[in-house]
């Protein structure tokens, strides 16, 4: 089994067996958040639908950079990207893709499992949790695309995830129109509406992710380190 072994490069895998959970939106914005603090980030798109690659094409070279990959080539691409200076690599995976999901999780320092707070999605997420348990990778369920003001729904969903043996990310990413508008324009919410709630939530998620990966969230700290 492959173990993450690139000391200056951290890898986050975004996996979920269910479609529509916001995997690509999460991947794009995590890579973009890292770019914003001066980190060299790379998004590896393993989804045959190539949504992230399409988004990158619309951006015409504006970072974060996106490359595609067949699942078996993920470890080699991570190694090559690490050698070329990548500091954060985010891997986007398609739904119902056992090989891509397991390859990505296997190479990851952190696995994020986006999940809508709904019964069907939570039930499907159980299989994803089993996969990351097997691979012994730190993994967190991130609640996405739910209502912005529904504390009881999120509390119930958290209890369910805990019951499955999973952990939840404390930052919730509710459904926001800004995501649709930004992605459709080849942008991120940081570019579309930097002062908005979506941007603020993703900043918090990025900072939380850096804490999990023991990475600094500020460029000046990284330079002096």
């Amino acid at each position: 089994m492959t173990t993450p072994s690139h000391p200056h490069t951290q890898t986050i895998a975004i996996i979920s067996q269910k479609g529509g959970a916001g995997k690509t939106t999460l991947a794009i914005h995590l890579a973009a958040a890292a770019t914003r603090v001066g980190r060299i980030s790379l998004l590896i798109d393993t989804d045959p639908q190539a949504s992230a690659s399409q988004w990158a094409e619309w951006r015409q070279g504006t970072p974060p950079e996106v490359i595609d990959s067949a699942p078996p080539r993920i470890p080699a691409k991570i190694a090559a990207a690490a050698a070329q200076g990548a500091e954060l690599i985010v891997i986007d995976t398609p739904p119902h893709a056992d090989l891509a999901a397991s390859k990505a999780a296997e190479c990851a320092d952190l696995v994020l499992i986006p999940c809508r707070p709904s019964a069907f999605d939570l039930a499907a997420m159980r299989t994803t949790i089993r996969l990351v348990e097997l691979l012994a990778r730190p993994a967190f369920v991130v609640f996405t695309a739910g209502p912005p003001h529904a504390p009881h729904i999120y509390a119930d969903a958290r209890d369910l995830v805990t019951g499955f043996g999973g952990q939840t990310c404390p930052i919730i990413l509710p459904d926001r129109a800004a995501y649709r508008h930004a992605v459709a324009a080849g942008q991120t919410v940081f570019e579309l509406d930097p002062g908005g709630k979506a941007a603020s939530e993703f900043e918090q998620l990025h900072m939380w992710g850096c804490e999990q990966l023991h990475m600094s969230t500020f460029a000046h700290e990284r330079k002096s380190a």
Partner: peptide, 10 residues
């Protein structure tokens, strides 16, 4: 900004 373009399949 094509630091990793050499790694793309497509």
């Amino acid at each position: 900004m094509n630091r990793f373009a050499n790694l793309a399949d497509r």
